[in-house]
């Protein structure tokens, strides 16, 4: 369950205020946040996972108000309950793929379930690359491995940032299927943030973000 209320944010005192519509997505459901470039999508994503703090309003994940968490507790909570998939996959390059999947456990102080990590990689078709360095994987393999990493520790919410914007139609379908399947299997709420209009009709639960009336850099 992820929900927001009266969310607004400004980067600095003299920059314009960004306001966001209220969102709510129950457990296990899927939601699309659609908006053009520069409308504050990334800002909203960062607010949702607590990387940024709103000037006003609240973000709740499974009932926990992120605003009351500070420092290490916020880092831990985010690590435990939110999985992030980025447009381009990034890994800790010096660690193997499997070790990268152990990171979400280690960084949130949990014992790593490597069997689960391996089976997840197997299910996503990159099990044979578990011992490889991330940079030795193809872009597609990297994306699947990064989905595995985002879900390995069974977070409540899976946030995907522009997962399809660089893909052709066929790959877009494949990635979305993968995200939906895996989120459903992990019981995670899936929130996709994108400007990709192709996704518009795929989801019932969607919020269109208004473009700002200010010039963007």
């Amino acid at each position: 369950m992820i929900e927001t209320s009266h969310l607004s944010f400004r980067y600095s005192a003299d920059s314009p205020e960004l306001t966001f519509p209220d969102l709510s997505c129950p457990n296990g459901e899927q939601m699309l946040l659609l908006g053009d470039s520069g409308c504050g999508k990334t800002t909203l994503l960062h607010l949702l996972c607590g990387i940024l703090r709103p000037n006003q309003g609240k973000v709740r994940i499974n009932g926990q108000d992120l605003g009351v968490l500070t420092g290490k507790n916020l880092d831990r909570f985010r690590g435990k309950h939110v999985g992030l998939v980025f447009q381009r996959s990034h890994f800790v390059q010096s660690l193997s793929v499997l070790e990268n999947l152990a990171l979400p456990y280690f960084l949130t102080g949990q014992a790593a379930d490597l069997d689960h990590a391996q089976s997840l990689l197997d299910a996503l078709g990159v099990g044979h690359k578990a011992k490889s360095r991330p940079q030795d994987l193809s872009v597609g393999e990297q994306q699947r491995a990064s989905i595995a990493r985002a879900l390995v520790h069974r977070p409540a919410v899976l946030l995907a940032d522009e997962p399809t914007s660089a893909l052709d139609d066929r790959s877009t379908q494949a990635v979305l299927n993968l995200l939906e399947e895996q989120a459903a299997q992990a019981g995670a709420t899936l929130v996709i943030v994108t400007h990709d209009q192709r996704l518009k009709d795929r989801y019932d639960r969607k919020v269109e973000l208004k473009s700002l009336a200010i010039p963007t850099s």
């Binding site: 420092g71 990034h90 890994f91 800790v92 990171l103 960084l107």
Partner: peptide
Amino acid sequence: ARRYELALMRTMGASPRG
């Protein structure tokens, strides 16, 4: 070189101190 990796680890729950 690893700025992004460090930020990534932060999103996965690492504290600045870690």
